[in-house]
């Protein structure tokens, strides 16, 4: 069970991820995208979900029972190779429905002070 005191809190990312062309190209190749000058729309998840997982596990969530319920992206501009992205994570909500714990975590990816992509992941912890 997530510690309810953490809802609304933002956890600044402690580390940054340097985005390589190799990583963008590998992700694009899986879905058949040949245009690799920018990252594909859902690429940000490779950074934000990992950060969210660490935060939520440290906050008491049982990750072994987690199912991905919803996902949203707001893309200010596409991620490109050479970006160095820090992910600030905010636990936006946590509630229990029919015994299942439902947590929404926002990840804001910054390149320096520039917000590049925001992601919202809603995770369901099965009872």
């Amino acid at each position: 069970m997530l510690n309810p005191d953490l809802v609304g809190r933002t956890f600044p990312g402690a580390t940054s991820t340097a985005v390589s062309q190799e990583s963008i190209s590998a992700f694009a190749a899986v879905i058949g995208e040949s245009e690799i000058s920018v990252a594909t729309p859902t690429y940000a998840i490779t950074i934000t979900l990992d950060q969210s997982q660490k935060l939520l596990q440290e906050s008491g969530l049982d990750w072994t029972r987690v199912v991905h319920g919803e996902q949203r992206f707001e893309i200010k501009r596409p991620i490109v190779a050479g970006d160095t992205l820090r992910c600030d994570s905010t636990i936006e909500s946590a509630r229990v429905m029919a015994g299942n714990e439902i947590v929404t975590v926002r990840g804001d990816l910054f390149n320096g002070t520039e917000l590049v992509v925001s992601t919202w992941s809603t995770l369901v912890v099965r009872a």
């Binding site: 899986v30 594909t40 729309p41 859902t42 919803e70 996902q71 949203r72 992206f73 893309i75």
Partner: peptide
């Protein structure tokens, strides 16, 4: 992976819209 299905849907949308650069928001429920 739900995110693979979403990535493929994202590829579809990007193709329709003239490329990944055109996609501003994207959301799904699994």
């Amino acid at each position: 992976h739900g995110m693979l299905t979403m990535a493929l849907a994202g590829k579809y949308v990007a193709d329709q819209a003239g490329g990944s650069t055109s996609v501003k928001e994207f959301s799904v429920r699994f």
